[in-house]
């Protein structure tokens, strides 16, 4: 399993994907930072996290990270190499999931830079900054789990990517537009973290959703093994 994680992480860095993902994050984060810190003069970083999560950031970052993970292997036939090596199915799926989760921490580390800049003027609220990061991380994790799931459904990475974009759109914007769907929003629970709270219920929900998606992925792959 560690071998696969190593290989996946290497892959993110030796292909443009990883850099594009970090670039999208930094671009949006910087733009909003410029607006809020320089133009408005606030030391509030949390609204920037919200902006990245809601306005296109995650919607493109996560699909880019996950679309190739299983669909790509199946497309090139290299799934035969992994699935016939002494690694369990759970090991393979978890390796794909964990490597994307590890990768998403990198842009979060970059935000320390903005935090540092703000410190020069006035130290921002540290607990809120940390809970925002945690919330952003948990939300990303749930999205990644779905990304892996959609990547396991199809042999086409493009379709897997589109499915993930659709999912993130559905849990971010659909509840805003159609009020009866507001229960499906993952953005509202995420807001709690931006207010400086560690919401246990929401944390559990995000983790449960991620486990659910991973389990469905396992079922799909196991079924394919016996049907294929």
């Amino acid at each position: 399993m560690i071998a696969i994680i190593k290989k996946e992480l290497k892959n993110y860095f030796f292909s443009p994907i990883g850099y594009v993902v970090i670039a999208i994050f930094l671009f949006i984060f910087s733009a909003v930072f410029y607006d809020s810190a320089i133009n408005t003069g606030t030391t509030d970083l949390t609204s920037i996290f919200l902006f990245v999560a809601a306005y296109g950031g995650l919607m493109f970052m996560i699909p880019l990270l996950t679309m190739w993970s299983i669909a790509g292997e199946r497309k090139s036939g290299t799934d035969q190499l992994i699935m016939t090596s002494p690694v369990s199915m759970l090991g393979v799926v978890m390796a794909k999931f964990i490597s994307a989760v590890i990768f998403i921490i990198i842009p979060l580390i970059f935000t320390l830079m903005y935090f540092g800049i703000l410190c020069h003027y006035q130290v921002p609220d540290i607990p809120t900054y940390l809970t925002s990061m945690l919330g952003f991380f948990l939300l990303s994790m749930t999205y990644i789990a779905f990304g892996i799931l959609s990547s396991s459904i199809t042999e086409s990475p493009i379709i897997a990517g589109i499915l993930t974009v659709a999912f993130i759109f559905a849990v971010t914007w659909l509840p805003e537009m159609i009020s009866t769907l507001s229960g499906f929003s993952l953005m509202n629970p995420f807001l709690n973290f931006l207010m400086g709270k560690i919401d246990i219920a929401v944390t559990v929900m995000f983790i449960t959703l991620a486990i659910l998606f991973i389990l469905i992925t396992m079922i799909i792959m196991q079924r394919r093994k016996s049907v294929k």
Binding site: N11, F14, S15, S76, G77, T78, D79, Q80, L81, T84
Partner: peptide, 9 residues
């Protein structure tokens, strides 16, 4: 395997 699947990169 048949068709020698490999990682191109």
């Amino acid at each position: 395997p048949e068709g020698v699947p490999l990682y191109d990169d």
